[in-house]
Design a protein around this nucleic acid. Sequence first.
DNA 1: CATGAATGAGGCTTCATTCAT
DNA 2: TATGAATGAAGCCTCATTCAT
Lengths: 221, 221, 221, 221
Amino acid sequence: MKSVPKQTFYNLSEEKRQRFLKTTLEEFALYDYNSASLNRIVDVAGIAKGSIYQYFDNKKELYQFLVETAVREKFTYIVYNLPDYPSDFYELLNSLLLLNVKFDLKNPLKSKLLFNIFTEKNTDLLGSFPNSIAYLSDEFMTEFIKYAAANDLLRSELDLEFTGFIINRFSQLIPDYIEKQHGSTYLEFILDDSIPESCKLLEIQHIIARFIDLFRLGLTY
Amino acid sequence: MKSVPKQTFYNLSEEKRQRFLKTTLEEFALYDYNSASLNRIVDVAGIAKGSIYQYFDNKKELYQFLVETAVREKFTYIVYNLPDYPSDFYELLNSLLLLNVKFDLKNPLKSKLLFNIFTEKNTDLLGSFPNSIAYLSDEFMTEFIKYAAANDLLRSELDLEFTGFIINRFSQLIPDYIEKQHGSTYLEFILDDSIPESCKLLEIQHIIARFIDLFRLGLTY
Amino acid sequence: MKSVPKQTFYNLSEEKRQRFLKTTLEEFALYDYNSASLNRIVDVAGIAKGSIYQYFDNKKELYQFLVETAVREKFTYIVYNLPDYPSDFYELLNSLLLLNVKFDLKNPLKSKLLFNIFTEKNTDLLGSFPNSIAYLSDEFMTEFIKYAAANDLLRSELDLEFTGFIINRFSQLIPDYIEKQHGSTYLEFILDDSIPESCKLLEIQHIIARFIDLFRLGLTY
Amino acid sequence: MKSVPKQTFYNLSEEKRQRFLKTTLEEFALYDYNSASLNRIVDVAGIAKGSIYQYFDNKKELYQFLVETAVREKFTYIVYNLPDYPSDFYELLNSLLLLNVKFDLKNPLKSKLLFNIFTEKNTDLLGSFPNSIAYLSDEFMTEFIKYAAANDLLRSELDLEFTGFIINRFSQLIPDYIEKQHGSTYLEFILDDSIPESCKLLEIQHIIARFIDLFRLGLTY
DNA sequence: CATGAATGAGGCTTCATTCAT
DNA sequence: TATGAATGAAGCCTCATTCAT
């Protein structure tokens, strides 16, 4: 968590900064890091080629800033909205997964950007950055699991760190499953205007329920 | 399953074809599709640049052929080695996951190549190919699940297709978890000569056991 | 001698002007003309990018001003400190070369800047400026030689202008020789804190002695 | 001495390779390393932008190859043409300096390229390459001096390595002096068709004579 | 059928300078 | 007068693909 834009970036007019960020976000949501093109960004945003470098040191810094911002935003959103007094672990987990999705529905591009992180692990240009973000994400869930364990909501034999990892990566399968069902991208699903928001939420809720069901009852009798 | 090399490719001497394939495999295992370089391949393999286009229509076809071959090989290996009369579902699942890993240990580069598929989903140059491979992979597991269900090894309420999907994507988390534990790449772990093969297998077996444990007993009492 | 800053430059506060000049000097001492970056200068000096153009017409004018200032300073220093009544020519020459070095030791960056001049001869952006500075430098030595000749200190057959040229370029080899001996830059040698100033001077004095020896006695008996 | 072009370079038609080399040589003779432009080269040579990289790994390799080739050529030329049985040291030195110049007259661009080396010392992109070439050049002269000393042609007190250095750098002042006299570049002087070759040689011979004279007789009586 | 040089678009980045505020 | 964002040309380099031999 240390990638910082240049001062110039903050001096921009709100309108221009937002336009730039929106374009950039779209680019990095649509393409992986290598394939994302700064040329395309400046073309779409209608700014000069050199301008990007007035705002950020280089492509990597720009990307990291984008990702870190989205991560922070998502975490904040979820933590802020978690129920204070859940009756049991599954209600808590359900809330957590649901908040995840709600954030996605509200911020489709950021959601996609974050989703992509897990596919950027072998880009050596980015170094250990993607991994560190992934770890952060796992840690968040692990904290959550530990909290649940501390409140005696879980089986005592569980390896908490392992369980946190599993549930976290697990929750990221939801978009994949949606894609599978719909034959379209998760992003397209979210942005599809022909489906009412409430339907989307309902469908996802159904999937989450099945997820949780698996974990509650196991596969066998 | 439709990417076909040109006839020229099959006319090659066995030695040359193998050399070419090995180099190509290394390249696509090490780099994602966009970053993989045909230039580098011809340099390393010591073949003419134009030759690639005698064998395949373009980069995409070459990549697809490679992937499809690896997929087929892995499936065959697993199916061929599955125990014929498993006593219960978990023994079967355990065998399946273990065979997965054993294949990885024997074919690290192919394993990495297949692992990368899931990171190529937004490379629009590849179209829907990565997805179709991922689906194929899910389907394989679903078939397996259905087979288990048919033999009354599972809870009857389960959505089999959903469950197949989950277990499959699940099994792909093993490399991720290894990476997390070791602070190195799965590929590096596999290729690490300082660790005896048996140790690697043992460690992974331990992880698989925990995976299965989660599914057997669930998270709570 | 004609590059003039704009009036604005002289209106600056002493502090700001010095800060700007120091940074600029560092940049042009460290990099050749083409590679020196105004961007870097404004970043380091913490001044506005446009300001440079309030002070100077362009990069070239800035550079020339810097060089001309350093030249004037060095000349003044040397002339001012030359012994008034030298006993013979070699004592005079020795003093001259020594003063050169003493100036370098006191003003490493300016020294480096002037040293670089001779490497800028083919930068066509600078036109004939580097040459004119080099000529100036030769002329200074020629004047010195003529003075010595007028006082009957030299062989009468000598071509004075030629001799001035030779001795001057000669004296500029001292840094080169130091670099050769030390395997480091002349600037690094000057700035090396682990060597006492007196040692540096002594070493250089030794080199100068050898220089002069060559000219005094020739190569053969 | 190890910069090697790619095989592709040697596979070029003699005509094309020569055209490319000529253009490149012109560029690096006219501009210092930083200012030399690969874009300009491909424009002038009429080749594709990517082609340079079929021949050489990068700008630096191209430059080094050019320099190393020229160095080798010049050394060979001089060594091959040195008189076998010189009567005394000054005749030998005279021959050496003259051969230097003759090579320049025959290969003006290569000469300029080599001359430029001594002005490239601070280009950090080139690393220690320029220095190593400069050292090589000094060494060549030092060998020469040692040979002369071994044959009792020199004063016995001389530091041979130092003397070699001086004479070598000395000999490089000839072009500078020419430039000073003619108010034009050494290269222009060489290429000036209005001056007969013989006149040029004569003029330079005269300068060399004065050089040697200085070393023979010293500055004073 | 093999070869490998040619191609030129596109990649990221740096630059000196301008100009509206 | 000071500012600093905007500019776009130019920098080096890599790429997949083509095509004449």
